[in-house]
Nucleic acid binder design. Structure first.
Lengths: 151, 151
DNA sequence: CTGTAATATTCCGTTGACGTCAACGGAATT
DNA sequence: AATTCCGTTGACGTCAACGGAATATTACAG
């Protein structure tokens, strides 16, 4: 991990812009950053979710790749399949030239959005049920403790 | 599917209460009700998520089973594993006699709750990003259409 | 220059969540 | 008695998403 600290003395605008945009990562940088294995990152690449550059045979991940990994992992945590994640990433990738294509991609985005919102609603229902359950359990606990005290 | 309509003439309280609480379902009732296969329901049973009664060799699902299936399927939609779903169901099952056990189960519930809330937050972040993306795309679309009109 | 730690590729294994197929049981209808 | 329609139990197949070992190359610190 190229240990570059910000304020060395080269913190002029130009360098900093270079640092932020051109910063690259080795595969192990990212495995330790996100706590995943190299196998996982290579698999994501195999599935077409990542396309890091190569320096010879070695992979060189860009800032963009890093962000994509972050998005992929969040998607996985939320229960999306890699295929679904790829669909969502393709939304951000797309820079459609034709208006019809543009409309179509917006439409696909709207569908995903609706799906996400539905998922939020269901999760809130789960949350509500858990809270109600918790209330009842607390009550049970309180009454039990009262009984305990009297005995 | 025993086609029992409500208002036949036997809709007195007692019968209705029996109907609602003692109603049973065959496996195919439930597969058509939830659009899952028999394999799925048997698998859930194999994994200890369901324990339907038996009439001879046939499974007889109760109202409680039906509700559990509903919860399981919602959990799956939300990206929980069957194991996680079982944990959550066990919360509702538990009727702990000892106070320490009671505290422990409440604690587990709180952990799940925290997890659910974190998941909601992440989903809302996804939603926000999608909305921002949509805004930009709309803008692109608008400017493109303007150009189109002039040409 | 040389060892050794990091990477790459390849290939087989595993786990979760089912699908699928064969072989059969029992009730009901014809 | 034969057919039809659920339903059952194995047992094996499958697909996604990696795990892990073996082997072969680099890359770079001393």
């Amino acid at each position: 991990m190229g240990t570059i600290v910000k304020s060395e003395k080269c913190d002029d605008e130009i360098f900093w812009r270079w640092f932020v945009t051109q910063r690259t990562y080795t595969i192990s940088d990212l495995t330790s950053l996100f706590d995943v294995t190299t196998r996982t990152l290579r698999y994501y690449e195999e599935m077409g979710l990542l396309t890091p550059q190569r320096r010879g045979t070695q992979r060189l991940y860009s800032e963009r790749d890093r962000v994509r990994i972050q998005l992929i992992l969040r998607g996985r945590r939320l229960g999306f399949s890699l295929e679904e994640v790829r669909d969502m990433l393709s939304l951000y990738d797309a820079d459609p030239t034709e208006i019809t294509q543009l409309r179509e991609v917006i439409h696909r985005g709207d569908e995903k959005l609706a799906q996400v919102e539905e998922q939020i609603r269901e999760l809130q229902a789960v949350r509500k049920e858990l809270l109600e359950w918790r209330g009842k359990m607390q009550q049970t606990l309180a009454s039990k403790m009262k009984g305990e005290q009297q005995a």
